[in-house]
């Protein structure tokens, strides 16, 4: 039995995950908590949010995110990849910066129109 705090939403439910029992989750306030509890112990993932360089915008950095969660272990590899990116304004919220980031199926997208 592993005790986890759900990070799906700001509520922060206290979950108990039973590894012996098919990762059955208790203490979750919604179905997404059950999914999180199981995934956190089998294949933990996170959405990555960061910035990349941009030329010609109001500021020097443009915020970006992965459009879905990627494996936790790939965070620093992804950050390295972002260091090499440079955008030119204008960009629109939702524009794809890098498709299929590190083979995860997640796209890196712009989160602010600049």
């Amino acid at each position: 039995m592993t005790h986890l705090i759900c990070i799906i939403c700001p509520k922060g439910c206290h979950l108990n995950v039973d590894e012996q029992n098919g990762y059955a989750v208790t203490g979750n306030g919604c179905p997404r908590g059950a999914e999180y509890g199981k995934k956190e112990l089998t294949n933990p993932t996170r959405v990555l949010t960061s910035t990349v360089k941009i030329k010609g915008g109001l500021h020097r950095r443009c915020p970006v995110k992965t459009d879905r969660a990627i494996p936790k272990g790939l965070m620093f590899d992804a950050m390295k990849l972002l260091n090499g990116v440079e955008l030119s304004a204008p960009v629109r919220r939702g524009d794809v910066v890098l498709a299929d980031l590190l083979g995860t199926g997640a796209n890196l997208v712009v989160t602010k129109s600049m």
């Binding site: 700001p10 959405v47 915020p63 995110k65 989160t111």
Partner: peptide, 18 residues
């Protein structure tokens, strides 16, 4: 720039700039 905004209002998880 992190996510977690809008779960109540937009029913989805957005970053601050979004």
């Amino acid at each position: 720039i992190h996510n977690g905004f809008g779960l109540h209002y937009f029913k989805e998880e957005l970053t601050g700039p979004e």
